[in-house]
Computed example of a mutant assay.
Amino acid sequence: MRMRQISKALQIILCIFMFVNVGCSKKVESITVGEWLEKIVINANIPESTKSNPYFLNIKEDNQYFSYVQASVEWGILDTTQPIDVGSLLTKEFVAYTLVNLMHEELNAAATKDASKSNFPEHCAKSISLGIFQTDKRGMFNPLEKVDRVLADEKLNLVLGYINNYDSKDITQVDLNEDIIEAEIPIGFNESEKIIRYRDEVNFNEKDIIHWNDGDDQYFRV
């Protein structure tokens, strides 16, 4: 009899705990492909399309996202050979696809471990080299993983910041009297894109000056 009483009391406590957790948990707000394209076009100040003929037969003038889709095609964000569904939920691969195209970056032959699961494997790989996304501990990109509204805003703002502040002629001037962090040689270094990759997490802060020697003395400001 006593065992039953303890079990019942435990059930009541667990139910209360679950109710409190559910009530207090932060709601994750999803975002559709159409809403995502609207965000890109508006925030990137992309001109509206003047063409009424639809680039995609399933997205016509009466669709609320028609103008954003049309503008996205003309700006090179969307490829008309790749079908889209503006009502579907936004995924990591679609974010990678659109943001890499927004930056007008050339694709390369690199691929993630789960590239076969993606419709945009080269865009996914490029988004990693650009620092937009990272793979998980297993080296997987997880292309079909849903992206919520908060993360979508974060990635868009990251890329818009890069576009608005990038200057290919900008060279960091290093004062050798400043504190310099002696760093290991990175596993990846793309000088034209100013991307340095390390296998493990590093504790560099913005404006730190790092130095490594791989035959040439390399000094960079983070």
Results as ranks from 00 to 15, higher is better:
Arg2Asn: 10
Lys92Thr: 07
Leu102Ala: 07
Cys124Ser: 15
Leu10Glu: 09
Met3Ile: 13
Lys146His: 13
Asn142Ser: 14
Asn157Trp: 00
Pro47Ile: 11
Thr98Ile: 06
Leu130Asn: 06
Val69Gly: 08
Asn58Ile: 00
Val202Trp: 07
Phe17Leu: 14
Trp212Cys: 07
Val150Tyr: 11
Gly161Tyr: 10
Asp175Ala: 10
Ile181Gln: 07
Tyr97Met: 02
Asn58Met: 00
Pro54Phe: 07
Lys146Ala: 13
Ser88Ile: 04
Ile16Gly: 01
Phe56Ile: 05
Trp212Val: 05
Ala110Cys: 04
Asp208Asn: 13
Gly87Gln: 13
Glu106Ile: 02
Lys155Thr: 08
Thr32Cys: 08
Pro54Ile: 09
Leu14Thr: 12
Asn165Tyr: 03
Ile84Lys: 01
Ile185Ser: 10
Trp36Ala: 02
Ile46Asp: 08
Phe56Glu: 06
Phe17Arg: 06
Val20Gln: 07
Val86Ile: 15
Ser129Asp: 09
Pro121Phe: 01
Gln173Met: 07
Asn58Tyr: 03
Glu201Gly: 00
Ile84Asn: 01
Glu184Arg: 09
Glu154Phe: 14
Glu38Gly: 02
Leu144Ala: 10
Lys92Trp: 07
Tyr55Ser: 12
Thr50Arg: 11
Lys194Trp: 05
Trp36Arg: 05
Gly139Ser: 06
Ser88Asn: 11
Glu35Tyr: 03
Gly76Cys: 07
Ile196His: 04
Asp85Gly: 06
Asn63Arg: 04
Ile185Gly: 03
Leu158Cys: 03
Ala183Asn: 08
His104Cys: 02
Leu14Asn: 12
Ile40Leu: 11
Ser168Cys: 01
Ser49Thr: 14
Glu93Lys: 09
Asp114Gln: 10
Tyr198Val: 00
Met1Gln: 11
Asn164Trp: 10
Ile31Cys: 05
Ile180Pro: 02
Val174Asn: 12
Leu130Val: 02
Trp36Asn: 04
Gln64Leu: 05
Ser192Lys: 15
Leu99Asp: 07
Arg149Ser: 15
Phe220Met: 15
Asn165Trp: 00
Ala152Glu: 03
Glu145Tyr: 09
Ile42Trp: 01
Ser72Val: 05
Arg221Tyr: 11
Ile185Phe: 01
Asn58Glu: 06
Trp75Phe: 10
Asn108Lys: 04
Gln70Lys: 06
Val100Pro: 02
Tyr198Ala: 05
Val86Leu: 01
Gln82Asp: 11
Tyr55Trp: 09
His211Ala: 03
Glu48Ile: 00
Phe133Glu: 03
Asp214Val: 08
Asp175Leu: 12
Asn157Gly: 07
Glu184Ile: 12
Ala115Arg: 03
Val28Arg: 04
